[in-house]
């Protein structure tokens, strides 16, 4: 769901001064309503599930899903699967940052690097990462390596692209002002260009992780390695374990949510929001 969350939550209109007040009361109201809606939705689901109109194997009762969820948490299988998935996603994501961030900076700073990589990137970027899964399976087998490389492939482009446009869009006025104050190349880079590009870099990190998270689940499903949350849901299909499937979906959504809101949300709050540099991200 890479692009949806970034463009969520319209913060338009609200004037700066009364934001905290109205936001709080509005937040409480919508939280309350959200709860009601979700309870009603759950009741509807439960009613259909209990009616016996669909086979219980296809539409398990919520209590059963919860039971399975707790059981899998307690016996550690769910945690083990999550650890495998997290290991792959973090490995691939960090690799993507290590490659994409410097490459994006180099592309923005040196025309020759940009001239060489930009055509390649424009040609590779439209290839969905999943299209490479079968190829990588042939080349690297069905282990961690394939999944990690798919994650890496998926996450590198948003990281690199955002860094590139971030460095390019650093306000030239800042460079002039810093130059006038005697900043040398080194200071200019670390104290002006990097913080100046940070809104884009953080957007890049965020998009890269979301892409990575999508890629890891998909790759685990297609490449059918032995462990991992993607494998769990796909494997559960074979045995009609819809309860396991739904339980794993909850974990997948939960982990994605935690990273999106807590990790990247707080990173944004600590930096670009504090500096008043938040921009509406482009997808």
């Amino acid at each position: 769901m890479s692009d949806t969350i970034i463009t969520s939550a319209p913060k338009t209109g609200a004037s700066k001064n009364n934001v905290s007040m109205s936001d709080q009361s509005k937040g409480r109201r919508s939280l309350w309503r959200a709860g009601v809606v979700l309870i009603i939705a759950a009741c509807c689901y439960e009613a259909v599930a209990r009616s016996g109109y669909f086979a219980p194997a296809l539409m398990p009762k919520l209590s059963l899903v919860a039971q399975t969820f707790v059981a899998m948490l307690l016996d550690g299988t769910m945690i083990e699967h999550s650890v495998f998935t997290l290991y792959r996603v973090m490995f691939g994501f960090l690799l993507a940052v290590l490659v994409g961030l410097p490459l994006g900076i180099l592309m923005a700073r040196f025309a020759a690097v940009e001239g060489f990589f930009l055509p390649l990137v424009s040609a590779l970027m439209p290839i969905p990462s999943f299209a490479l899964v079968p190829l990588f399976m042939l080349w690297f087998g069905i282990g961690n390596l394939t999944t990690i490389l798919i994650v890496f492939y998926a996450a590198t482009f948003p990281m690199m692209f955002n860094t590139w446009s971030g460095v390019r869009s650093v306000n030239p006025l800042w460079l002039r002002a810093a130059g006038a104050m005697g900043a040398d190349e080194n200071a200019l880079f670390w104290k002006v260009i990097i913080p100046g590009a940070s809104p884009f870099i953080i957007t890049g990190l965020r998009q890269a992780f979301l892409r990575a998270w999508i890629a890891v689940v998909g790759a685990e499903m297609i490449a059918a390695s032995d462990w991992g949350l993607g494998w769990v849901i796909f494997d559960a299909k074979e045995f009609l374990n819809t309860d396991v499937m739904l339980a794993a979906l909850v974990v997948i959504g939960g982990i994605g949510f935690v990273f999106e809101k807590m990790v990247f949300g707080s990173l944004e709050k600590a930096t670009i929001q504090r500096w008043g540099m938040s921009r509406v991200a482009k997808g």
Binding site: N171, L173, W174, R176, A177, A178, A180, V192, P195, G196, S198, T271, W275, G276, M277
Partner: peptide
């Protein structure tokens, strides 16, 4: 140097 544009300050 002082410019016209308020954006000359480093927001970070």
């Amino acid at each position: 140097v002082v410019f016209q544009d308020f954006a000359q300050l480093f927001p970070w």
